[in-house]
């Protein structure tokens, strides 16, 4: 008890009880689900800082909860996006070759590469991709021609109905090789750091492969669940998935993601890009800070 009174969660003999914890975390998780599903990053972006900074939860348990929130965002939002044909199923499943391979090889590299180096490297990569996405903020018209042999062979092009513009938009995919490379790195980083798989997936599809921004976000959403599932088994066995944290996170994020999936159709690609850029800048600064001043 003396130890608990030193911490901020207990004052004047009353503590933040498990009920307070579960209810407040569930409410925050709803917001995380809305944001995560809208920009295709998953809820982990919000969940990890909230758990570590606000609730002082051990980082290992926070990362376990983040994996749960990523899968919840993905499944919750993808159910709606796929039904509404916002997701490019073929491109998503094709690129999963690279993300899952990256995730599995990342599990082996953890011992070789120092985390600090990774945080700095990843912070710089994300800083650059937020800049690249920002530069493309006025680009709205997708490509109508593609000479990419891989994209043509696997028929990765597609079309979707955009409710904000009230028309069917068809698009062509290019830069599959660069896309695959970035997806491999995304899977690798996701396994090594437990975060950030969507942060590389969206720019890979939007900037490198020229998929429309909304399709990139919806397809990233579709894919992050599989990337996270590839490392979730490890987290479960290591005892990083604590039920009292995972329960409100999973339930709240699922609710928020279902709601967020309804919002994406109505907003413009430009808005989605800007929200994405802001979140990306925050994450990249956070990563650089962790790498430089741990």
């Amino acid at each position: 008890m003396r130890e608990l009174q030193r911490t901020t969660d207990c004052s004047y003999n009353t503590c933040v009880t498990p009920l307070d914890f579960v209810v407040s975390l569930a409410l925050i998780s709803v917001a995380a689900g809305v944001l995560g599903s809208l920009i295709g990053l998953g809820g982990g972006v919000v969940i990890v800082p909230v758990l570590t900074l606000l609730y002082h939860v051990d980082i290992r348990l926070a990362i376990g909860a983040s994996i749960v929130s990523v899968i919840a965002t993905s499944s919750g939002a993808a159910a709606a996006y796929v039904r509404e044909r916002m997701t490019n199923l073929r491109a998503g499943m094709f690129l999963e070759i690279a993300t899952t391979t990256g995730a599995v090889s990342g599990a082996y590299l953890t011992t070789i590469l120092p985390a600090r180096f990774l945080f700095v490297f990843f912070g710089l990569v994300l800083g650059y991709s937020s800049f690249a996405t920002f530069r493309r903020r006025h680009v709205a018209e997708p490509l109508s021609v593609s000479n990419d042999r891989i994209a043509n062979y696997f028929d990765l092009h597609g079309s979707y109905y955009d409710p904000a513009e009230d028309r069917e938009i068809s698009y062509k995919v290019v830069g599959t090789k660069l896309g695959l490379g970035l997806m491999y790195v995304a899977g690798l980083v996701s396994a090594l750091l437990g975060i950030g798989s969507g942060a590389l997936k969206v720019p890979a599809m939007d900037s490198a492969m020229h998929l429309p921004m909304k399709v990139s976000s919806a397809t990233s959403n579709f894919m992050i669940g599989v990337t996270a599932a590839a490392s979730a088994g490890v987290y479960f066995i290591r005892g990083q998935i604590d039920p009292i944290i995972a329960a409100p996170v999973a339930a709240g994020v699922l609710l928020g993601a279902t709601f967020g999936a309804r919002v994406l159709g109505r907003v413009t690609s430009k808005t989605v890009r800007l929200v994405f850029v802001i979140v990306l800048v925050v994450i990249s600064l956070e990563m650089l800070q962790k790498g430089i001043f741990p």
């Binding site: 503590c15 009920l19 002082h56 009292i244």
Partner: peptide
């Protein structure tokens, strides 16, 4: 676990030594 004001902190359930 239930009361809103109580002596039982959630941190007993979210520490690294919590059994689950």
């Amino acid at each position: 676990y239930v009361p809103i004001r109580g002596h039982f902190s959630y941190r007993k359930l979210t520490s690294r030594s919590t059994p689950f």
